[in-house]
Design a protein around this nucleic acid. Structure first.
Lengths: 208, 208, 208, 208
DNA sequence: AATGAATGAGTTTTCATTCAT
DNA sequence: TATGAATGAAAACTCATTCAT
């Protein structure tokens, strides 16, 4: 009976949050307008007051996910590169590991496969490019500070770390948490990062 | 109105092949009975002559995909471990890279996210476990032959290589083939495999 | 393309009415969503705006039918029992006899056989129990008023009258209106009711 | 592997028997060709070797059911009418009561409601007419033997007994066996039969 | 006498979307 | 800013039936 009116901005945010939860619970395809509307406590028609169509909602959800990724990665800035990356991936790891911790980063995989139709795919690529560029930037800054050798290819390293996060996501979604021991993840990251640090003469040589 | 009769076995295979193509083109969710039927040149009802339901078709597609993965991995057997893994991943890489090369292994990602509702998820986990076990076995055989040191954890290595393939799959599905240079993939694999042999003495030394 | 909007309550009622007519014409199994929708002048999808599924519509139809039965039986209350029952059964008889008189009570037989799969069966039993209980109550009241002897088993009598109505229904649905002369029906009822009234010394004795 | 060939006549009978069981278990509508074929151990196509279509099978089932009814009623012939009818209805009662006793007489109700489409309805009426005529005949013979008074209307009595059996069937199908005590059934029959002999003088007197 | 492979018409249900109010 | 009532297209699946072999 209480009026369910809400300032547009607030409602919009609420809808996106609800939608994100719905994608988390039912997958991208299972994120129907009905479920989102129910979750938001409005009618389906109301969703169209705030978004042009379903795709726009999903796009907003994707934005939210990448905002989180950006935030996580930003945590690595202004720290010794290796340490920074380790911390960031640690955070990421915890997010992915526990659905209920509020992290939804692995949901991006939903978009990877689910976004064939719609303009989602293009947006996805754009976002990921930007995210990896951010990572590469942070690494570059590290190089400037002398944290790591000049010869390290920042972009390449950034992509490898990104690849690592993807692998983690897949393991999570496959429900292989038990087989894919945490140490697999840790070990894999170790191998990626080990190549970098102090060993310009050994590994570095090879990398070039 | 030409009759489209075909021996059951053959038709079954044809349907699965068509279905695989449809999953490739439209995603798991987009793999509708209508599309599969059209592709196979039969009516939807005919599909039910050969499969109990949609899930069974999809399950058969998943089988096909893993058969491909098994075949690729089998190529690494009875070779020096590192070399074998490199070759196998190379093959995998080429398959993933080119849609039209006939490889569909990367489609497994479709099942990763798309199989929430169905019994597909369980099948998926089972298959992946078996596949990684196969890889670990091959590595164990290498240890027996003295290819690589005893201290290497075969299972862990197998999972890492698997993780690598997942990352490759994601890059492919994200449409990031250009950004995710082949060298990123190669480099990542290098780091995984480099860790193996030289240790504990020196990685670099061995690699050089 | 004229808009066919209608307040929900009204539409709901209309749908149920249409559905009842469809059951009358095509039987319970023949009461498809397509026919109901067409009859109501809406699309099939619209039916789902008002009812969760087909079963709910059918349940509403069943309710309507029993409402009619209750109403008919209620007409026997506060009258000398025998007379009351006679009048009520008379009304029932007329309803059953003429399809176009607007009575649909006999349709309950459709539900008797047609409700194997659905949750209709349970609802059916519940309704019929209540209906017969109503009849027994009315008879009890008659006993209190001294209309009929105490020794009469109200419940048993209620069931017998109910059985009589069933026989009438079957005759109707079998299309045996001509053979099953009205007098058969009347005679059968006579025999049921004759047992009751003034003859405590003759029939009554036997009944005890 | 064993040849499933069978002489046509035998197969035909087998199919009808299976079909009857299927109608018993799933209702008339649930009696699909697939189920009948499976039950008979042949393909659906084979059914068409023996019957023109589904309707013909169902018609044969209906025949079987009425054969049973005829057989039961025949048991009343050449006996004192009242006694004979009592025995026959007793047998009928037991059949209806226990599904697994092999009796399927109550299944005729399935045909009552389920046979709207098809020519089943017409056949049903024809059969029932014949069955009631048989009953009336038997009663007539009783009159000739002097068992019961001349003034009794044989046809009317036959229809009443038939009506009684219908009520029994409905109670059975409604799952009201517990409420519809056997005594209701017995009592109802008593009232029907009681009317016969004593009259016009006194029912009670004769019965006592 | 029976099969194997197929079909066409139909079933219930779900979904994103619209638009007058 | 929201709702209430609708729609059209599509989904998975079922059924009786056919016909060459």
């Amino acid at each position: 009976m209480a009026t369910h009116r809400m300032p547009a901005e607030k409602r919009k945010k609420q809808i996106v949050e609800v939608a994100l939860g719905v994608v988390d619970k039912y997958g991208l395809h299972g994120a129907t307008m009905a479920r989102v509307a129910r979750g938001a406590g409005v009618t389906q028609a109301a969703l169209y007051t705030h978004f042009k169509n379903r795709e726009q909602i999903l796009l907003a959800v994707l934005d939210t996910i990448y905002e989180e990724i950006f935030r996580i990665q930003e945590g690595a800035r202004n720290k010794p590169v290796i340490e920074g990356l380790r911390e960031a991936t640690n955070v990421y790891s915890r997010f992915v590991g526990g659905r209920r911790t509020g992290g939804h980063a692995y949901l991006l995989l939903e978009f990877v496969t689910g976004s064939r139709e719609h303009g989602l795919r293009e947006a996805l690529g754009r976002h990921q490019l930007a995210a990896t560029r951010q990572l590469a930037d942070i690494i570059e800054e590290g190089k400037d500070r002398g944290d790591i050798p000049e010869h390290v290819d920042s972009e390449q390293l950034a992509w490898m770390v990104t690849g690592w996060s993807w692998a983690l996501d897949v393991a999570q979604l496959m429900g292989l948490r038990s087989s894919w021991h945490p140490n697999v993840s840790v070990e894999l990251l170790d191998r990626i990062l080990d190549g970098i640090d102090g060993r310009p003469d050994s590994v570095g040589a090879v990398l070039s």
